[in-house]
Nucleic acid binder design. Structure first.
Lengths: 216, 216
DNA sequence: AGCGAACCGTACCGTACGGTACTGTGGATG
DNA sequence: CATCCACAGTACCGTACGGTACGGTTCGCT
């Protein structure tokens, strides 16, 4: 039998999605402080009563926003093509660039700031939600890529999670945190290409199976 | 009269430092939401009026808290001893462990959450303050270590900042962000040793001079 | 046309917070 | 002892927000 596409997700109506979109825009522009129920209602041309009817309370709205945003990221399945040393490198670099651009996105930054702000009090679940919906998805794509590279004899590692952790660190380092702290993300976005190349070169030197290191 | 030790820092009185300590404790326990002026005054047995007299307003209090906490981290100057491949590795592993433990500290986590939460609105300056006081200090220590390693012929790199960026990424990866998002820092703290060893091994494979495999 | 559900707009309530003003008090100084 | 000062404690004010209630309107259904 066929399972529902998103069993865990309430999957709101188009109207409600539009409201969530407005709420996200509001959050991006003004931070969490600007995300008031009255503000969302005004921006989305809906009533506060409807907000509470649809999302329960403010926390419900926040959770819905995260779920909504996560539902917009496409799975980006890598088709199983024949990997060579060159194509693997290309795929890795592409992955690195995509990852950096996702992390630098203003919506991503705003949601991460929101979840981090709520992480202090117990039982917020926003952090784990973002972790689950965000990083796990990205990690799955990277994991498949690494696995394919190993099957093709191009990569050598024992623990896939460990290799992915190294890959992630080489690509991102503390750049994500610095952007979260307010450093201008647009200014550093022009270095993403060079950074991705650098990180993948290092990763391949660490985990590549061929003897001589290759670089472009 | 004796000059102040830190010209850039207001350098508050002992009483005010005690108040800042109470405020930090409050922030660690309950997050930013719990850090109210009335709460700080109650916890520190002082009056709100004194708080405003000493720190101006709430933002001044937050800045003072960051400055106060930063003033407590010691510079940790590495003495210029003769580096060998073994001692360099030991120093790097020690640095990695220290870095991880600092990042996992509850005060550090709370302050980073605070700064990130304030980063959305313009002109907060808290993020850059934390960046300046925190990472720059750590980076200076690491930079000196890397430089010493290069002078001793044990490391090979052109750009010190780039090498440090790689080192940082290998050590921390997304662990800092995950802790900021609420993941239990205590549970993962027991892996810091293994993680530090792993990261330094990888770093030395990338930048070590004893074997081949070096290029720009 | 009649009806009811969904919903918008707004007014309202309780609360909590940032910031200010006032009063009392202990302690130093002359 | 008289004076001054820094401070604690508290009461107070304006505001803003989360959440609720209610009247009016649209729209689909019978």
């Amino acid at each position: 039998m066929q399972l529902a596409a998103h069993p865990h997700q309430p999957d709101y109506s188009p109207r409600q999605n539009a409201v969530l979109d407005c709420a996200l825009r509001l959050l991006v522009d003004g931070g969490e402080k600007a995300l008031t129920t009255a503000g969302v209602a005004r921006a989305a041309n809906c009533s506060k009563e409807s907000l509470y009817k649809w999302f329960g309370d403010r926390d419900g709205l926040l959770s819905a926003m995260i779920g909504f945003q996560a539902s917009k990221v496409r799975a980006f399945e890598d088709d199983a093509e024949i990997l060579t040393a060159v194509t693997l490198r290309e795929h890795l670099v592409l992955f690195a660039r995509d990852l950096l651009e996702v992390l630098a996105g203003d919506v991503s930054l705003a949601l991460n700031r929101l979840a981090i702000g709520q992480a202090s009090r117990e039982g917020s679940k926003l952090g784990s939600m973002l972790q689950e919906r965000g990083r796990r998805q990205v990690g799955k794509r990277a994991g498949a890529l690494l696995e394919a590279g190993r099957r093709a004899g191009l990569l050598a590692f024992d623990d896939r999670d460990e290799a992915y952790d190294t890959l992630y660190g080489l690509i991102v380092s503390d750049l994500h945190l610095r952007m979260l702290l307010g450093e201008d993300s647009g200014r550093m976005a022009k270095d993403f290409g060079r950074r991705a190349e650098r990180a993948i070169s290092a990763f391949l030197r660490l985990y590549g199976h061929q003897k001589g290191s290759v670089q472009s």
